[in-house]
Design a protein around this nucleic acid. Sequence first.
DNA 1: TTGTTATATTGCAATATTACGATTAATAAT
DNA 2: ATTATTAATCGTAATATTGCAATATAACAA
Lengths: 110, 110
Amino acid sequence: MGLAKTEIFTDRQNQIALFAKAFGHPARVAILQHLFKINACICGDLVDEIGLAQPTISQHLKELKQLGLIKGNVEGTSVCYCIDNESWTGMKETMLEFLNQDISKKEDCC
Amino acid sequence: MGLAKTEIFTDRQNQIALFAKAFGHPARVAILQHLFKINACICGDLVDEIGLAQPTISQHLKELKQLGLIKGNVEGTSVCYCIDNESWTGMKETMLEFLNQDISKKEDCC
DNA sequence: TTGTTATATTGCAATATTACGATTAATAAT
DNA sequence: ATTATTAATCGTAATATTGCAATATAACAA
C-alpha cells in the first residue's frame, strides 16, 4: 500500500505522526536548525549550507511551510524563510506530551 | 530517488531524523502509547487494540525494536514487548534538545 | 505425534518519498 | 527591452514504506 490507515487512529496520534514525519529527514532537521541559528534566512543560503539541489530544498521548505512550522516572506527576488514561533510552541507541546509518557512510570517489565 | 543523502548530514541530524521517522506513523505512536499504558504487553493485544493485521503490527514492532526503543521477551508461545526505558530516556534527550532550540530565541523575523 | 496458538517472515501490490534536470515565473539591474 | 538572479513547479527515475495474504516457525497441549 504505502498508504497509512489514518482513519483508525485518533487525531492526536495522527498529528504526532505528522509532526514527527516532518523531522524524519535530516535535510529538514538541518533546515530548521539553520533557521534557528540565523533567525532569518533566504533560501539561497540553505542551498549552499545544505548540500542538496535547489529544487530539493524548495520541496523540503514547502513541506515545513505546509505544516506551519516555518513561514516565508517574499523580499525582492529572494524569499525570507523563518520559524513560526507560535506554531513551533504548539507543536512542542504535542510532542513533549508524547515524549514524556515515561515520567511516572516504573521500571521495565521484562 | 527515495533515498536520503545521509552522508552530507551530521550524525546528530541523522539520529534525530531516525527517531522522528519511528514516530512518523500513527500505528507506531499507538503501539508505544499502549505499551506505556499497559507497561507489559503481548503482541496479540496490539493486533486487537490497533486495527491492523498481525503481520503489519509485527513489522512495526520490528522497526521499534531495531531502534532499541522497545524490547521483547519470549514467554511461551507469545512475546512480551515493553518499552526500553533507558533507551527511551536517551532518545528523549536528543529530541528535547532539538525541540527546545526555540528557547533563548527572540520574536519572528518576518 | 498431532494439533493449536502466537508471532515472524516472505512476497507482492499500491502508494509515498527523495532527488534533480529542465522549465517557468517574478523581480531586479543594466 | 534585455538580461541576470532567485525560487517555485513540473516531470520523472530510483527507492522506501505500508499493508496484507500466505506461509513458516516455535512452543505448548493433548
